[in-house]
Design a protein around this nucleic acid. Structure first.
Length: 464
RNA sequence: GCCCUCAUCGUCUAACGGUUAGGACAGGUGAUUCUCAUUCAUCAAAUCGGGGUUCGAUUCCCCGUGAGGGCGCCA
């Protein structure tokens, strides 16, 4: 095992969104690529906004996406693993007190207005702050130099003392973040670019503790797609929540694959890749510097590509997971062999699992909808009623033992009337399935069975 | 207002300082299949602007402009 130690440090104050997932992913990829350790740390110091439900969502989302962690709370939330715990900041009060005392003893922190402040070293002066509309005390310091793995050399001036413990006694983010990274021996900090400006604070804190800062790597942000407006993606944007993709039965590996391509590429034209290949190819210097816009269409396409190539058993299992949650689920899955046959017929045709219900409805009930637009179109051409009547007459004698036999049967009927297969196909499909989209008419007939096909045609003729 | 970062088709992106600026998604057109979808073929589509450096700049430098982020006793 290498000495690379990275962490993902979410706070359970809201839904798990796509930006967090991508940050987690890049950390996970780097850990797996280097043979290092991936740590999950829960930043739950903000008691007012924390919730157990959101905490569980973090575990579930990471697990669903296949990002396993080596240290941190256990995925079921009971107990934890790793030698550097506790991994929830709410349980690390003692550690923070100790480090606060260290700063106090060294003269690098002081109390003011009931809060504890970190003290910058240098000459002090007062100046008016245009942004905050008040006079502030600043400190003349040398710029902090950050050698970022993705950005290169970044310089930033840190010129004001800042709070590390609030007057309510709780430590603030910058402080706990640095203390935890020190005590957990984090070697690389991979996080969003929104933290780049905070990094100078963090570096000063490391110096205050007499510790060499870890390697920083600030990854680009995910922006809204153009139709969603301006700015970085937030939880309120459509498609921003991991939970949503889970509910829509996306394939997690497709989502991970898509996310990995937002700000990174393997150096060639490959896009669809095995997770194992992404792990072996991923590296920090290859990460882009510019922000990326989220594109739901490309994600959907990636998901479809994955869906098309799923082995039959996995696809049926995915379908089962979907139908279990549908009100009609029990009826749909009542006959195992029939269910499987219908589903495998649908697999090459659908773009996402959540289309399955509508796509296969007429296989499981007589109460399927008739698409009005399709009906109008089909009925306007030729003499569909006559074709249907001919089919009804010919069907009882037809061989239904195979797709080929059915096809031959319809063809010979058509030839006898001087017509083509196509003259019967559209109206038969409409009468039997209520739509124009579906598997081949022959396999549809065979799976449905002769009686049901004839009955539906008769009913259609009566009501049409 | 101050500070930091970024800038190639609509979007994600590729291109040792030398390419007809490539690929993918989305879009257009056509072919194939009994429908639909897939698939295949094909078309359209970009180096933000201005200065340098250089024989030569998408690539290096500067200035604009635009976009994103930060400036909390939030994380």
């Amino acid at each position: 095992m290498s000495n690379v130690r990275v962490r993902f440090a979410p706070s359970p104050t809201g839904f798990f969104h796509i930006g967090s997932a991508r940050t987690a992913l890049f950390n996970w990829l780097y850990a797996r690529h280097t043979g290092g350790t991936f740590i999950l740390r829960i930043e739950d110091t903000d008691q007012a906004r924390n919730s157990e439900a959101f905490l569980k969502l973090i575990y579930d989302s990471l697990t669903w996406l296949g990002m396993d962690w080596d240290e941190g709370p256990n995925p079921d939330g009971v107990g934890e693993r790793g030698a550097f715990g506790p991994y929830r900041q709410s349980q690390r009060g003692d550690v923070y007190q100790k480090y606060k005392q260290q700063l106090l003893d060294a003269g690098r922190a002081y109390e003011k207005d009931g809060a504890v402040w970190f003290k910058l070293l240098g000459e002090r002066y007062k100046t008016y702050d245009e942004h905050r509309k008040k006079e502030v005390e600043k400190v003349k310091t040398l710029p902090v130099v950050i050698d970022d793995q993705i950005r290169g050399r970044v310089e930033r001036q840190e010129d004001e003392d800042f709070v590390i413990f609030r007057s309510d006694g709780n430590p603030v983010f910058h402080f706990v973040n640095v203390v935890d990274d020190i005590t957990m021996q984090v070697s690389h900090i991979i996080r969003g670019e929104d933290h780049l400006s905070n990094t100078s604070k963090h570096v000063r804190l490391y110096e205050g503790f007499g510790v060499t800062p870890p390697v920083f790597a600030h990854i680009p942000l995910i922006l809204k797609s153009p139709e969603m407006g301006q700015g970085k993606m937030s939880k309120r944007d459509k498609g921003a929540l991991i939970e949503e993709y889970q509910q829509r039965h996306f394939l997690p590996e497709a989502l991970v694959n898509y996310l990995s391509l937002l700000g990174w590429n393997p150096g060639d034209n490959r896009e669809k890749m095995l997770i194992a290949d992404i792990v072996s190819l991923f590296d920090l210097p290859a990460v882009n510097q510019s922000n990326a816009r989220f594109d739901g269409k490309k994600l959907a396409n990636m998901n479809m590509t994955y869906l098309l190539e799923q082995p039959a058993d996995r696809f049926v299992q995915l379908a089962r997971d979907y139908f279990v949650k549908q009100p009609t689920g029990a009826a749909v899955m009542a006959n195992e062999a029939y269910f499987r046959e219908v589903l495998l017929m649908a697999q090459p045709k659908i773009k996402s699992i959540d289309e399955l219900g509508a796509y296969t409805v007429y296989f499981f009930t007589e109460e399927f909808p008739i698409d009005a637009k399709v009906k109008e179109k089909v009925m306007a051409k030729g003499d569909p009623q006559a074709r249907l009547a001919e089919l009804i007459a010919a069907l009882p004698a037809m061989d239904f033992s195979s797709d080929a036999a059915i096809e031959a049967g319809i063809k010979s009927l058509a030839e006898g009337k001087g017509l083509g297969f196509g003259d019967y196909q559209a109206v038969a499909r409409l009468a039997v399935s209520g739509t124009n989209a579906g598997p081949s008419i022959t396999s549809m007939f065979r799976v449905l069975g002769k009686e049901r096909v004839v009955a539906r045609m008769e009913r259609f003729l009566r009501t049409a």
